[in-house]
Design a protein around this nucleic acid. Structure first.
Lengths: 128, 128
DNA sequence: CAGAAATCAGTAATGATTCCTATTTTTAAA
DNA sequence: TTTAAAAATAGGAATCATTACTGATTTCTG
């Protein structure tokens, strides 16, 4: 067996499942530390990467230069607020056909696409 | 007047226009240095940011953690090779309507979207 | 239970990018 | 053309997210 159980990985995974705000590694670290005070940041990073590689979580790269993590591994789109940086899910269907369109006249294999939307979130709109 | 002419910025801008491969700041630096030997990396970064802010070039964030720059400021999509990292333009129309779809049931202002495709480029496909 | 293999905590290293400062350029006006 | 303020530069230090390293600890299999 290559992958051994680890209490730390379990706690990280459990924490991520409770969140719908797509936290960063740093946020995961700070929260997990509440119940596991001497977990190290490196362990958080390593396990987030492991979980993502196993397909149990999703790593989101949304242009802010910081990786966000999402326990919801289904295909769905995200919105990023340019004001406060909040990341939220969008209730829109995954765009089928977009890959077909991209494949036209392309020399190579297109395997997937990344899409996210940006703008000002509801909360920030109201605060102005 | 706020923005003054700078020979360095001109050279950077000129160089970028000759390229269709969306180079990184580091690549711009190495190339520009051929004809401008003591330009500094900080100057390259500052001017790329300035040009992008002025809308004269485009900053591309394609998930590899390194910013790429594109002198073509028209709306178009990119393909990133997961094997070699090459970035190429796709000849597909900008997806109108995608913003409308995203705006449905969303509380906040959606201003735009970022989309890129990934897979294995033609060159890497052949080399296997 | 023992021993190998994986994981950990803590810390150092990395790499892209930004910031800082004394010096040099640019530019508009005298 | 000279001048002086504002902006830009070179070079290097600092930042920040992330990864790598290492000796100690935990997990698992027989």
């Amino acid at each position: 067996m290559a992958l051994k159980y680890s209490r730390q990985r379990q706690v990280i995974s459990d924490f991520l499942m409770t969140r719908k705000d797509h936290p960063t590694a740093e946020v995961v670290y700070k929260n997990v530390r509440q119940e596991y005070p001497n977990i190290s940041l490196g362990t958080v990073y390593r396990n987030l990467t492991l979980l993502a590689d196993m397909g149990e979580i999703q790593r989101l790269r949304l242009g802010d230069g910081i990786d966000h993590f999402d326990a919801d591994t289904s295909a769905h789109y995200h919105f990023v607020c340019s004001e406060c940086g909040a990341v939220t899910d969008l209730k829109m269907p995954c765009m089928e056909g977009i890959l077909e369109t991209a494949r036209k006249d392309f020399d190579g294999e297109i395997q997937g696409h990344v899409t996210y939307f940006y703008g000002i979130c509801g909360k920030c709109t109201k605060c102005k």
